[in-house]
Amino acid sequence: MTTHHHPTDASVAPFVPATYPHEVTWSLPHHPRSAGNARAQLREHTHIWHVGDEVTTTAQLLLSELVTNACRHARPLPHGRVTVRCALSPTGTLRVEVTDGYPVELARPRHPSPTDISGRGLALVASLANAWGSQLLPDTTGKIVWFELAAPPGPPPARQDARKP
Rank of each mutant, 00 (worst) to 15 (best):
H111T: 13
P112M: 07
L137V: 03
S134L: 04
I117M: 07
A131E: 01
L137A: 07
T91H: 07
T93D: 06
G121Q: 00
G101D: 05
R81N: 15
P103F: 12
D116K: 03
V98W: 02
A107N: 09
I117Y: 05
L106P: 11
E97G: 07
C86G: 14
P109V: 01
L122M: 09
R120T: 10
D139S: 09
S127W: 05
R108Y: 14
R108K: 12
A123H: 03
G92T: 05
L88D: 02
L122R: 04
T83Y: 12
T99D: 08
V125P: 01
G119A: 04
E97L: 09
P114M: 08
D139A: 09
A87C: 12
L137Q: 10
A123M: 00
P112L: 07
R95S: 09
V125D: 02
D100H: 10
T91I: 08
V96Q: 05
R81Q: 15
V125Q: 08
S134V: 04
G92A: 05
R110Q: 10
P103V: 13
G121P: 05
A107R: 02
E105A: 15
V104H: 14
L106F: 11
V82E: 14
Y102V: 04
R81A: 15
R85H: 15
G133P: 04
A126G: 13
P90F: 07
S113M: 06
